[in-house]
């Protein structure tokens, strides 16, 4: 279980990365935290010609404070967020979720950009960032573009990344003072990938109400106008207003045929709501 021989590069800036990864003739993998890529290399599931290590790029480790959002560099680690080395603008949502990702050893190296680019449906960032309404910024040979996180993920292990593009930042909106969020995942054991995730955000000041069913077969199911589903925003106990039958229909209509899967996912969202009641 050892990787094939590959070339290795560690550029100092994003332009250096873009110049290396636009070549169609060779297989290139981006190495950030390596928590998924490392095992995949060792098992030879990927056999790249070139590995581009982006952890030496200062820009990707920066956090940019903008008017209504923060831009978190792609190489910021889960533990950076967990330990509040990145200022929190989500009323505790991101640090709390970060602290529940896998194990500390993984969190010390694993990165936010790497996680959502790897696009494992069971991973945490993809679901909570979708609920929060975060976007990603991609930079490539043709310039810069931005996408909602849930649109960036195309499907299981597939991100909307064009040839030569690199995720440079994850942009997290600053939540209003009345915002409430919840996150619940069903795992068979501590640190394991989830088999169901429920996440939501209600931010009355910005008129945002979103719900997410995560850890599905593919990308998370995001309900961007979730008011009817998860109840009125003014209620103290949000779970009271939760319409579980409607939630069940919704995920069934989106292809989740197995009633046990549906029950676990509906329960996850309801429990996310129950948690928020005590915020």
């Amino acid at each position: 279980m050892k990787p094939v021989n590959f070339d290795y590069a560690r550029p100092k800036d994003v332009a250096g990365v873009i110049s290396l990864i636009g070549d169609e003739s060779r297989v290139v993998k981006i190495l950030a935290g390596g928590q998924s890529l490392g095992p995949m290399l060792n098992m030879r599931l990927v056999q790249p010609d070139l590995v581009v290590d982006i952890t030496g790029i200062e820009e990707l480790r920066q956090v940019e404070d903008r008017a209504d959002e923060v831009g978190i560099g792609g190489c910021v680690t889960h533990s950076d967020i967990e330990d509040l080395r990145v200022a929190d603008v989500t009323r505790g949502a991101l640090p709390k979720v970060a602290a529940g990702i896998a194990y500390r050893a993984v969190r010390n190296r694993g990165t936010i950009g790497g996680s959502i680019t790897h696009a494992d449906p069971s991973a945490d960032w993809i679901s909570i960032l979708s609920a929060i309404g975060a976007t990603v910024t991609l930079r490539g040979p043709d310039g810069v573009r931005s996408l909602a996180v849930e649109d960036y993920m195309l499907g299981a292990l597939e991100a909307d990344l064009r040839l030569g593009e690199l995720l440079v930042s994850v942009n997290v909106p600053k939540l209003g003072p009345a915002a409430r969020w919840g996150y619940y995942k069903s795992c068979r054991k501590t640190g394991e990938f989830a088999h169901a995730i429920g996440a939501f955000l209600i931010d009355p000041d910005r008129d945002v109400c979103r719900a997410v069913f995560g850890a599905t077969e593919s990308k998370p199911l995001v309900v961007s106008e979730a008011g009817d589903l998860i109840g009125r925003t003014g209620e103290r106990d949000l779970a009271q207003g939760f319409d579980s039958r409607r939630a069940d229909e919704l995920i069934r209509d989106n292809g989740m045929n197995d009633p046990i899967d549906r029950q676990i996912h509906v329960a996850a969202l309801r429990r996310a709501l129950e948690q928020s009641g005590t915020v």
Binding site: P39, M43, T190, F193
Partner: peptide, 14 residues
């Protein structure tokens, strides 16, 4: 199951 991601072992918290 070819890795411990697929083959679950109990850990300290279990």
């Amino acid at each position: 199951a070819s890795t411990f991601a697929d083959y679950l072992l109990p850990g300290p918290t279990e």
